[in-house]
Nucleic acid binder design. Structure first.
Lengths: 215, 215
DNA sequence: TGCACTCGGTGCAACGATGCACTTAGTGTA
DNA sequence: TACACTAAGTGCATCGTTGCACCGAGTGCA
């Protein structure tokens, strides 16, 4: 009937379930924003787990935060990549790859990711260099993964060419992301969405113009 | 907001939850009948608990079954008692108490309880004396609890009188219960229900006649 | 300046769950 | 009779969780 619904090792399964509960609770708390104070005790209560257990799974509260951020980022990246792999990429032309990437950028919920990271890290404008580092690491990760994806999917596209194309788009996205965050404070309302689309349009135009001048 | 959803002692809460899972799984397995074989491994799988854990909570498999039976019995008794306490009992007359008790007997799902016990214990006709002992203990428990209930609710009714009244009804119920089990094999179909009602009518008539002759 | 208070983090012992090897008893089969 | 097989039950070491006392840094306040 049902084949090993639980792997033979209940111990590991339960441990994993606890880790999951902690991460889910952390994600929920961050999503709820500053209203729900993000403390160890809050986290423990939400995850239905002892306070001590959190420190059995994670080295620190920051460890929890960055892990959650990484997971959320992973989801967005997966969605982004799915769009890229779904879109038909023309045979080897930079223009086709460019179109695919920009389309993916438009469709993906980048502001949502930015808002989550913003809330998780408490903004960019503090003395703490950690948030900006995580943002940069985030974009770096997206860049490399997407470049590999692109060149794998399209043998005619030079790997270096792909990386340069993705890189220019991603670094540009990073620039407008910081601009958007500074301007909106990671708001999720309509004006913020509009501003994001405007910034994205300007970025795409800029990159397209630059590339066209090279043709 | 939410006040101690979990008592401060998570350890005890989790332990109780495991015990509950085992008992619920046992109840489900018994209810499903002989199709679902009632073994320790089955029980452990259903309760999502290690096989060893079952023996941490219960001394034996029989311990589990009798505990479950006791719980199911408790539910029925509670229902029974609720009917008794709800029905208006006249001031001190045996007739009023008798009416209340018989009404409760008619309303309560005695055949359902009997069927569950029957399945849990594997019938009465084996060399094992345990099933019959449990049945007798069951009725004994109902008898004493109900007698106390009756005399508490009605100060004009002599306690001994109450116990004698309840006792005669309950022992009669025990008699027709064994008869019903032997005849139907604890079936849950319509003929079995009809037979039960007929037996119950004959019992009530018999007791009523006997009591009337004492007036 | 001193004091109370909060919160992140640690050390440690106790506890319950688990896996596993093992024994024992019952049952069917060659 | 001997053997295989199944299922109940036990002993024991191991593991993850938990509660608790405790520490140290930061913060608000008199």
């Amino acid at each position: 009937m049902e084949l090993d619904a639980l792997p033979p090792d209940r111990r590991a399964a339960l441990k994993a379930r606890h880790r999951r509960a902690i991460l889910d609770a952390a994600k929920a708390l961050i999503t709820e924003g500053p209203a729900a104070r993000f403390s160890v005790d809050q986290l423990a209560e939400r995850a239905d787990v002892s306070r001590r257990t959190i420190f059995n799974h994670f080295a620190s509260i920051d460890d929890v935060t960055t892990t959650v951020c990484s997971e959320v980022l992973g989801v967005v990246i997966d969605h982004f990549r799915q769009v890229v792999t779904t879109e038909p990429v023309g045979p080897g032309t930079r223009a086709a790859a460019f179109a695919t990437l920009t389309e993916a950028l438009r469709v993906t919920d980048v502001p949502g990711l930015l808002a989550f990271l913003w809330r998780a890290l408490g903004g960019l404008d503090k003395g703490d260099p950690r948030p900006r580092q995580i943002f940069q690491a985030t974009f770096s990760r997206i860049t490399t993964e997407l470049a590999r994806e692109l060149s794998e999917r399209n043998a005619d596209l030079d790997p270096l060419e792909a990386e340069l194309l993705v890189s220019s788009l991603m670094h540009g996205t990073e620039v407008i992301a910081e601009h958007w965050l500074a301007a909106t404070g990671a708001a999720t309302d309509e004006p913020a969405r509009v501003l994001w689309n405007e910034l994205l349009d300007r970025l795409i135009d800029s990159v397209r113009t630059g590339y066209r001048s090279l043709d």
